[in-house]
Write a protein that binds this DNA or RNA. Sequence first.
DNA 1: GGAAAAGTTAAACTTAACTTAAAGTAAAAC
DNA 2: GTTTTACTTTAAGTTAAGTTTAACTTTTCC
Lengths: 129, 129
Amino acid sequence: MKYTISQVAQRFGVQPHTLRFYEKEGIISPERTESGIRMYSEENISQLEMAMCLKSTGMPLKDIRRYFELVAQGDKTLDERLEIFTDHRTHVLSEIEVLKRHLCKIEGKIKWYTAFLEERKKELSQKAG
Amino acid sequence: MKYTISQVAQRFGVQPHTLRFYEKEGIISPERTESGIRMYSEENISQLEMAMCLKSTGMPLKDIRRYFELVAQGDKTLDERLEIFTDHRTHVLSEIEVLKRHLCKIEGKIKWYTAFLEERKKELSQKAG
DNA sequence: GGAAAAGTTAAACTTAACTTAAAGTAAAAC
DNA sequence: GTTTTACTTTAAGTTAAGTTTAACTTTTCC
């Protein structure tokens, strides 16, 4: 099964020009029909899935391009690709830790504000009663 | 205890000009000495801590400014401030979920590559042996 | 056959969060 | 007293990841 640019765009929630932009950046280059229309293969789709995974975990486009360059170079780059993933895992784990740590602070604030507002409500109803 | 701009900068791992930039953006405005030198109070420090917490969890500077504007307006804005924090908690939680979900994919790749490379190593040692 | 979608190149624009530079004055620290 | 450090303003530059516009051609779909 092959897909047109707008089908793929819709699937990934982006605009067609974004996919052309990614292509220009050397990330995913689909085959073309004789007349020059982009046709994305199933493999292109799963490449894009990986690209989106890396992107939404904070990998810059130039590093994503690098990864796909290595893929294109075949088996001799397996070690380097593994390294990219292990490094990126470390990065994602530390991002999660940062978020969790700060989440605690935010939840502390929420508790504080909630308690304070609750207290104020009580006082008001006492005065009223 | 009061702190100079460079002491504060060092503490938060930023440059002095970044703190001046935040001031220009209406986030944290320390008092000045008679001669015009910025002196950050303990309160300024804890404000900055909160600002950094919000920033590193993805809140844009303009929203951080808005929060401090509300703080400056006193108790009448408590509800709105609580809402900012509860909304932001939701945001952070969903970011953590996204990261965790994609982390699984990345770990899947790591397993796959590791197994593949392991297999290849075995084959090589068999040929050699 | 006409509308909708796809193609092209090239350049300008956008937003966020700074950074750098220029160019000089003033204050503080040792 | 001299070397840091801090101050000012204004403006331009940077990076990332697109978006928008222009201006026009070509294909495909109904």
